[in-house]
Nucleic acid binder design. Sequence first.
DNA 1: CTATTATTTCTAACAGCGTTAGCAAAGATA
DNA 2: TATCTTTGCTAACGCTGTTAGAAATAATAG
Lengths: 200, 200
Amino acid sequence: MGVAERKIRHKEQVRGAILQSAWKIATEEGWQTLSIRKIADAIEYSVPVIYSHFENKEAILLEFTKEGFTLLTQELLKVKESEQEPGCQLVKMAKAYWNFAFENKEYYQLMFGLGMPACEMVNTVPEMKTFTDVMISSISAAIAQSKNPEAEVFMKYHAYWSILHGLVAIQMIEKSAYPDEFKQKVLQDAIEGFVKGIGG
Amino acid sequence: MGVAERKIRHKEQVRGAILQSAWKIATEEGWQTLSIRKIADAIEYSVPVIYSHFENKEAILLEFTKEGFTLLTQELLKVKESEQEPGCQLVKMAKAYWNFAFENKEYYQLMFGLGMPACEMVNTVPEMKTFTDVMISSISAAIAQSKNPEAEVFMKYHAYWSILHGLVAIQMIEKSAYPDEFKQKVLQDAIEGFVKGIGG
DNA sequence: CTATTATTTCTAACAGCGTTAGCAAAGATA
DNA sequence: TATCTTTGCTAACGCTGTTAGAAATAATAG
């Protein structure tokens, strides 16, 4: 009997509508103004229905955060595999990271930005763990074949990620938007300088 | 007649109590949980009294943000004046920036962190403008006497500040706290590498 | 010292938020 | 058709920032 299947199908349909509406509201008005009641209005259901799909508001945000980390990790892996030399890998990955951030501001702001996540979750949420693993392994490879193999891997990893995040964060805050070529050059200079620093 | 003076004195006393209580609550429970009602309770006045001293909640936060930028700028200038060579200046300023962030987490999180400010205010609030001016002038000096005088000043300034902010931001998020020596070394390596990148 | 005026302060409310208990309606089963 | 299960809703709790308007206090004038 297809009754149970239909119910499940409907349930997932509503779940999808919740996420879809949440995303729409967030992109139109920002994550800050997203509220459960707005989502309820959008999906034309009452508020408690949402709580039968998600434990709380944070769980909805976490859904997108995980999605964002999955997407970013995919981009990084794609670029990484297209390049053999670890140093070039890092430079290209930095560029991919940069592009992701500015082509998916909504994701990035949620992942690293204004609010809750990315603190205790870095090691508990699998999607984030995968992301950090990719970062660590790439940096490790670059260090391994460098002239400073005794370099502390985690320190270098931290510095690399920090620089990336910092570049993106400040550029996001900046209102007086520079031309994209400028921004690209900032990134390239900084990362190449850093990679050289690791290498020698 | 000292009646007007006494009134003003009392008014500023209340204003001080508001800021003092707000700071106490923020340091004890975090900026996120700070509320007007909590402040009102703490100063033993009713809520609307606070609105006769500050236009809204954001104005209270802005007060501390400005204070933070003033303090940070002072630290940076102090270090800057103790060193002639522009390259060394940048390295020392980075260290001072770093120390400020971790010795004044409440300030830093408010200045760059989780929420509202630092977006449109960078050029409108004088205290922030002063800060960015110090950053720009220092970097400009380093570039001027470098072998790449044609370097775009603002790009380099952005990269420098970005790296600093990124290093701090990621380290603040990180739970598995590395020893302080490690962190210091991360900073030093990254900044020295960057300054070398500017210089040659 | 009293009456009037100006100032200060408070009560109470509005509109919004996340969250949940308990009831009504609709669906599935016997 | 009657029973039971699931689903969804109404309404509330306690919190938030903010403000209108009344009450209490303080300063001034007669």
